[in-house]
Amino acid sequence: MSRFLGMAATAHALSLTAMEEASRRGQREADIDDLFLALVVEEQIAGQVLRWAGITLDAAREAVAALHAAQLESLGITADLPGPDRIVFHETGGYEWTGRALDVFDRASRKGSKGDGVAVLRALLAEPSGMIEDLLHRLGTAPAEVLARLDEAERLPARPAPRHPASGALSGSAEKFVPAPVPAVWAMLADPARMPEWDPGIARVEPGEEAGLLGGTWVALAPTHRPDGRRLDIKPEFRRRRVELLDADEASFIKWRLSFPDATRANPLCIAIILEPAAGGTLLGITLEWQRIRKSRVLGPLLRPWQKFAIWMQLSQIGAAISRAFR
């Protein structure tokens, strides 16, 4: 991935998580504290370093709340506002970054910087307000300690890139950190009835065979309405999906196949997920593969960039949805 695409992917992933965190507290502007929370659950080195320092998402959220409460108390104000306490980002709109959060991204993407999560964390540690330093102290560490850990982690050999299932296939892979233990993540991913929790294209899975049954098939139905009640216009042939459990290895690997039984020309999709225990949660290796039914020699190469982008978007959406289910 080029530096520019890497920076764009980092900014997209961090923005999504940070704005989701802001939405939990009833805010529509994501600030540097939300960016810090997003980095805590980031799957790359920056997130790993923070989690190795013992920072969990719950502890970081408590630290953010305690910091604001203490600062308000210093003004003589006690405010215990009940927020939605659940992520409402996808049901609402108008989200923005604060100016100082944008400054952090700007510093992280300057010439000579990789623009990845590590660069964002380094820029965040250098932000001048003192908020991040205060948060780290509340979490039992300090900017210098985190910087030392970052230097150490960057000297380690990089993890090998996730494997692609087959050369030439329409496929892509990505890693995602989920702030929950492996058994909890497995319980969700292995249960077809819980697919709507992590696949935005599925609203309901009709009761069928028992969960975890290898070779079992189920019928999934697409959502019919948006969160605000407006009707979704989905073509009739794409409203039903056939769900098959192709492979499963208890708490470590699962592979689903999704196809459209009413749209015979539509490509089936395979979703393979590897689960690994990680500090503070579970690391997922997600692979998507579109099994092509018809290949076009003329259009195929022309469409390849668009297809790559579509797969990246889909990977990003599924990874984010799995992580969100545990936040």
């Binding site: 502007e29 600030d31 308000l72």
Partner: peptide, 10 residues
């Protein structure tokens, strides 16, 4: 000043 920033968020 930092407390005022929290007040703005509130």
């Amino acid at each position: 000043l930092r407390a005022v920033a929290s007040l703005r968020v509130l």
